[in-house]
């Protein structure tokens, strides 16, 4: 049995711990209960034909659709396509965004020159660029990745630049007094002290890159979860739409959980 790390000092403390654990358990129970209730209600309402199964699908039909996709080998094919687009877009977007933020931090004039363009790019709904991207990069995976990059790069640049600029001036002064060059200041202070913000940016960028890849697949694709959703809605196969959405939910949550875990490790390491 896993032993509690907390040291129980008194009866009152033991009571407090008990109450705390019971509250935590109640919340978990309610969360799971809500999900189970929703699934059961959905299934019952469609089975009893209160809800039209063609429009609302049903949990059992979703399971059966996912199972069919799995046996036909399509499931991992489509997941693979969307996941690779998302991951490539995520890595490129975050990487390029951080590099741009470094350049803007390094050169104040460049920052001032590019400031209005970044503001415009940030406020522009990226989907408006869809047709241009398709013409420039072709109707394939590249365009979806570019869409993904476009969505994540601006938010990464702005957040990271903000993190770089909020580093304490006296710490910079300290390094300058030790004779540090600008590159040393970047390497020894700016980048490591922005690590917590970087992890927070990753959390935002994960969601953004899923938006980018699915949006891209809505516009142009012949494979992927976004394609399955669009295809399903076009042929009025709501089972396929719901199944793909569910898979998408699971994948996005798993990716988010990985980043959240990374954030926890970073925070624990820095004592935040």
């Amino acid at each position: 049995m896993k032993r509690s790390k907390s040291k129980i000092c008194s009866n009152e403390h033991a009571k407090f711990i008990k109450q705390y654990k019971s509250k935590k358990l109640t919340i978990l129970f309610c969360q799971l209960g809500l999900l189970i209730l929703f699934i059961c209600l959905w299934e019952i309402l469609t089975q009893t034909q209160v809800l039209n199964v063609l429009i609302f699908s049903s949990p059992s039909r979703i399971v059966s659709t996912i199972s069919t996709l799995y046996t036909s080998g399509d499931l991992f094919y489509h997941i693979g396509i969307t996941l690779s687009e998302t991951l490539i877009g995520f890595v490129l977007g975050v990487g390029l965004g951080t590099i741009v933020a470094i350049l803007l931090w390094w050169n104040e004039s460049l920052r001032k020159i590019l400031d209005p363009y970044i503001v415009v790019l940030n406020s522009l709904p990226k989907i408006a660029l869809g047709p241009i991207i398709i013409i420039w990069f072709g109707a394939g995976m590249q365009s979806i990745i570019v869409m993904c990059v476009l969505i994540t790069i601006v938010i990464t640049t702005l957040s990271m630049l903000n993190a770089f600029q909020s580093v304490s001036n006296t710490k910079i002064l300290l390094l300058q007094s030790l004779g540090a060059s600008k590159f040393t200041i970047l390497r020894k202070l700016i980048l490591p002290s922005s690590l917590p913000q970087f992890v927070s940016v990753l959390k935002i960028a994960v969601g953004m890159s899923w938006v980018g890849s699915i949006m891209g697949e809505y516009l142009i694709s012949s494979a992927g979860l976004g394609y399955l959703i669009v295809y399903g809605s076009q042929v009025f196969q709501l089972d396929l739409v719901m199944s793909s959405t569910l898979i998408l939910c699971v994948l996005a949550s798993v990716m988010y959980l990985f980043v959240a875990l990374l954030e926890k490790i970073v925070h624990r390491r820095l004592g935040l």
Partner: peptide, 27 residues
């Protein structure tokens, strides 16, 4: 010159030895 400020300005991600070594690393 050695400069000491109002705040200790220790780098939170570095342990004591590593913080103390900071100036040595730069030079």
């Amino acid at each position: 010159i050695g400069y000491m400020f109002q705040q200790d300005n220790l780098f939170e991600w570095r342990n004591v030895l590593s913080n103390i070594r900071l100036g040595l690393e730069i030079t």
